[in-house]
Amino acid sequence: MFGYLRPVREELKVREYELYKSVYCGLCRRLGRDYGIITRFTLSYDCTVLAMLAASLREENSCVKRGRCRFNPMKKCMFCATDGEAMHLAGGVSVIMAYYKLSDTITDSGFFKRLAARLLRVFLSGGFRRARKAYPDIEAAAGKMIESQQLAERKGSGIDESADPTAKMLSFLCERLSDDEMTRRVLSRFGYCLGRWIYLIDAADDLEKDIKHRCFNPFISVTEADSAETAVFCNETLNMTASQLIMAYELLQPVSYREILDNIVYHGLSFQQKHCIFEKKRKKGRKMKDRKKKDYYTFLSRGDEDI
């Protein structure tokens, strides 16, 4: 469920891209410092976005420094060095979500996967305890989310109900970023749509795999029709969510990181939709890197040559 919230790099200015990377690296460092070195592996694009959103709403300023990457000492990177609450929060969320994701894998996977997940979870437990201590409310919400998610999947619910737990979780997370009543309401809606979008794109992305392995997927009930039609249906459902998300986003006034957040919301979402729903399946053979680039250029031309 991770990694769908990304800016379209080609649409960013160089300095915006550098800033984005520095937040990413800064978050990684903060994870190491606040929650233990092993939690650095839980770093994800989504939590970077959360860090930016939080910093933006709290009007925290970033101070970019240069340093060496711990995992790739040959590389010098820029990183965002702040003691701000935003990064701490995003790190905590990252650890908590990763921990629960592993717990989820433990309950519904095969033997070997389960074993690996158990092992990883042991490594993560120290960081998790720290995160839980710092944000008991988020931990509780995440626990509730996993529980209702499992319930919804067992019941075999429809699209809306199965997306609801993730959406509610994100809604809760976003809502607590602000103290202002009006902003909280906007954030709550924004988070709801964002969570819904993330859940649904993940479902659309995994659809083929889930059909093959007979796993739960909310889109399976509509997939009797041929796959092209299903793709269009998934896309339409996501479009509707995205437009609601944008409506809420336009009422927010992000201060810092505005260009990057705009990029993610206006370009990133649609690019991911195109990439996951229409492009990925037909291009399995090609190398990842080429694929991404090619996808972007066909995205620019709105795909008139190959859809």
Binding site: E236, L238, M240, I246, I277, R302
Partner: peptide
């Protein structure tokens, strides 16, 4: 209004907005 949203004109990806292949 909802159909407008679903086509992707207000966000998301418009898969039908392309010229015939």
């Amino acid at each position: 209004r909802i159909q407008q949203q679903r086509t992707g004109n207000q966000g998301g990806y418009n898969s039908q907005g392309s010229a015939p292949a």
